Computed example of a mutant assay.
Amino acid sequence: MKEFYKRILLIFVISILALLAGCSGSETTNGNQKEKTIKIGVTGGPPEQITNIVKKLAKKEGINLEVTTFNDYLTPNKTLADGEIDLNMFQTIQFLNQYVKDRKDPIMAIGTTYNSTIGIYSKKYKSIKEIPNGATIGIPNDPVNIGRGLMVLEEAGLLKLNHGVKQLTVNDIEENPKQIKIKEMDALMILSTLKSIDAGVTTNTAAYNMGLNPKKDALHIETRRDYPMVVAARKEDKDNKDYKRIVKLYHSDEVKKYIQEKYDKVIILTDNPFTIK
């Protein structure tokens, strides 16, 4: 009987040792730490292209950055909140804050990447001065970008706004000397409907996606730099060191060089990746 229990004990010890050895093997491969996978969602154009540079840099640090590209501005946040991806990078801090306010999803910005810009585009006119009285101009229809679009039209000298409100709407137009008609539209549809309107305000990311060069094709490019793009994560992951490392990689010399060469001041890196206003 004693022999039987000794054998049982021996089998138990061997099983535990085998289990521990197996666990150790899952963490290392040939003595090196196994590659970590982080899933990130982006939209096409600059967010995707810049993130692919980050992906190459992350690979050198043992991180497999798996990039998923979305074709709208809502699904990347919903997919993040549902845990299907770990991070996303496609939106400004203002857009994210409005999304969270409206939908209550437990996501937040953990760092900034770059300042993108929006522009005024037209297929009918080659300058702001050519835009006629009574022209119809499309602007994005989400609350944040309605105000941003109106401010770009003001920058271009087409409107004057009342800035004494928290969130600008068309009701805050104080002066409209050309009697411009404002048409609120889906931001992703503006460039494809330029034949039916006189001009449109949209992101330069969308312009790049349509094969346009904002420096050459935009009638006016936004000069403000207070709409930084952010990396978002679930609130429970806000202190994840690997995720913060991804944020830092967006500010690497390689990414900076790529942005300077490809986007020529239309896109500019933010000063500090972890200063979020």
Score class of each variant (00 low, 15 high):
residue 33 Q to Y: 09
residue 153 L to G: 02
residue 27 E to C: 08
residue 77 N to F: 15
residue 87 L to E: 04
residue 110 I to G: 03
residue 79 T to K: 06
residue 36 K to L: 15
residue 66 E to D: 15
residue 139 I to G: 04
residue 91 Q to T: 10
residue 129 K to C: 00
residue 109 A to I: 05
residue 131 I to S: 00
residue 46 P to R: 05
residue 87 L to H: 03
residue 40 I to A: 03
residue 60 K to C: 06
residue 43 T to W: 00
residue 104 K to S: 15
residue 111 G to H: 06
residue 48 E to R: 14
residue 126 K to R: 11
residue 104 K to E: 14
residue 55 K to V: 06
residue 28 T to G: 02
residue 107 I to A: 04
residue 122 S to V: 07
residue 89 M to A: 10
residue 142 D to H: 06
residue 123 K to N: 15
residue 42 V to S: 02
residue 122 S to A: 10
residue 33 Q to P: 09
residue 60 K to L: 12
residue 74 L to M: 13
residue 87 L to K: 02
residue 130 E to R: 00
residue 128 I to C: 00
residue 70 F to Y: 14
residue 32 N to E: 15
residue 110 I to M: 10
residue 109 A to W: 03
residue 102 D to T: 14
residue 79 T to W: 09
residue 139 I to W: 04
residue 79 T to Q: 09
residue 53 I to A: 06
residue 108 M to R: 11
residue 132 P to A: 04
residue 128 I to P: 01
residue 77 N to H: 13
residue 158 L to D: 00
residue 52 N to I: 07
residue 43 T to H: 00
residue 83 G to V: 11
residue 128 I to L: 02
residue 132 P to Y: 02
residue 37 T to Y: 07
residue 67 V to C: 05
residue 59 K to G: 09
residue 61 E to L: 12
residue 112 T to S: 13
residue 130 E to I: 01
residue 58 A to I: 08
residue 130 E to G: 01
residue 58 A to S: 13
residue 113 T to M: 11
residue 88 N to D: 10
residue 41 G to V: 00
residue 149 G to N: 12
residue 55 K to R: 14
residue 113 T to K: 09
residue 62 G to Y: 12
residue 97 N to V: 04
residue 37 T to S: 13
residue 94 Q to F: 08
residue 99 Y to G: 02
residue 152 V to F: 01
residue 68 T to S: 06
residue 89 M to W: 09
residue 54 V to E: 07
residue 136 T to Y: 10
residue 146 I to E: 12
residue 61 E to C: 08
residue 72 D to E: 04
residue 34 K to R: 15
residue 93 I to C: 06
residue 36 K to Q: 14
residue 89 M to E: 13
residue 121 Y to A: 10
residue 31 G to W: 07
residue 145 N to V: 04
residue 62 G to A: 11
residue 71 N to W: 05
residue 90 F to M: 12
residue 73 Y to W: 08
residue 157 G to M: 00
residue 79 T to F: 11
residue 116 S to K: 03
residue 107 I to L: 05
residue 128 I to F: 01
residue 64 N to E: 14
residue 94 Q to W: 10
residue 74 L to D: 13
residue 133 N to W: 02
residue 33 Q to E: 14
residue 61 E to R: 14
residue 88 N to G: 03
residue 55 K to T: 08
residue 102 D to P: 06
residue 73 Y to N: 03
residue 139 I to L: 09
residue 119 G to D: 05
residue 27 E to Y: 08
residue 155 E to F: 00
residue 53 I to H: 11
residue 86 D to F: 02
residue 91 Q to V: 07
residue 71 N to Q: 09
residue 97 N to M: 07
residue 72 D to K: 04
residue 122 S to T: 07
residue 143 P to E: 12
residue 87 L to V: 12
residue 131 I to T: 01
residue 62 G to V: 06
residue 56 K to V: 08
residue 49 Q to F: 07
residue 88 N to M: 05
residue 154 E to C: 02
residue 85 I to C: 01
residue 65 L to E: 05
residue 92 T to F: 03
residue 41 G to P: 02
residue 96 L to Q: 12
residue 34 K to N: 15
residue 96 L to A: 11
residue 32 N to D: 13
residue 115 N to H: 13
residue 97 N to L: 04
residue 61 E to T: 05
residue 54 V to I: 13
residue 97 N to E: 15
residue 121 Y to L: 12
residue 61 E to G: 05
residue 50 I to S: 09
